[in-house]
Simulated scan of single mutants.
Amino acid sequence: MSELRTERLLLRAWRPSDLAPWAAMNADPEVRRYFPGVLTREQSEASTARFQTDLDERGWGWWALEVRATGEFIGFTGLDPVDEDMPFTGVEAGWRLARSAWGHGYASEAARAALDFGFTTLGLSEILAVTTATNLRSQAVMRRIGMTHDPADDFDDPGVPDGPLRRNVVYRILAGTAVA
Rank of each mutant, 00 (worst) to 15 (best):
A101R: 06
R143D: 09
R50H: 08
S44C: 06
E30K: 12
L10M: 05
V31K: 02
R99V: 15
Q43M: 10
R166V: 07
Q52L: 02
R167M: 08
G123A: 08
A101I: 10
L4P: 07
E92Y: 05
D162G: 00
A69V: 11
D153T: 11
T70V: 08
I127C: 00
I74W: 08
T177R: 05
R12M: 11
R41E: 15
A20S: 14
G75V: 02
A133K: 10
I173Y: 05
R15K: 14
V130Q: 08
I145E: 04
G37P: 13
R8Y: 07
L79G: 08
G105D: 04
A140E: 09
G123P: 12
A180N: 13
D18V: 08
T77E: 13
P81R: 07
T134F: 00
I145D: 05
A46I: 06
T132R: 12
V169Q: 11
V38D: 05
Q139G: 04
R112L: 03
L9R: 04
M142D: 00
T134L: 13
I145G: 00
M147Y: 11
D150M: 03
L174M: 10
G176N: 05
R99T: 09
P158A: 00
T77Q: 13
A64Q: 09
E7C: 12
R15G: 12
T132I: 04
G123N: 10
L174Q: 15
Y34W: 14
E66R: 02
D156C: 12
A20D: 15
I127G: 01
M86P: 04
D116Q: 14
G78N: 06
A180S: 15
V141D: 07
S125A: 15
E92T: 03
S2A: 12
V170W: 05
D83Y: 10
A24Q: 15
Y106H: 14
L9G: 07
L11N: 08
D150P: 00
A113F: 08
R41G: 15
A49F: 08
E57F: 12
V179H: 11
R12I: 06
R167Q: 04
I127E: 01
E109P: 01
R99P: 03
D83N: 03
P164Y: 02
A27K: 01
N135V: 03
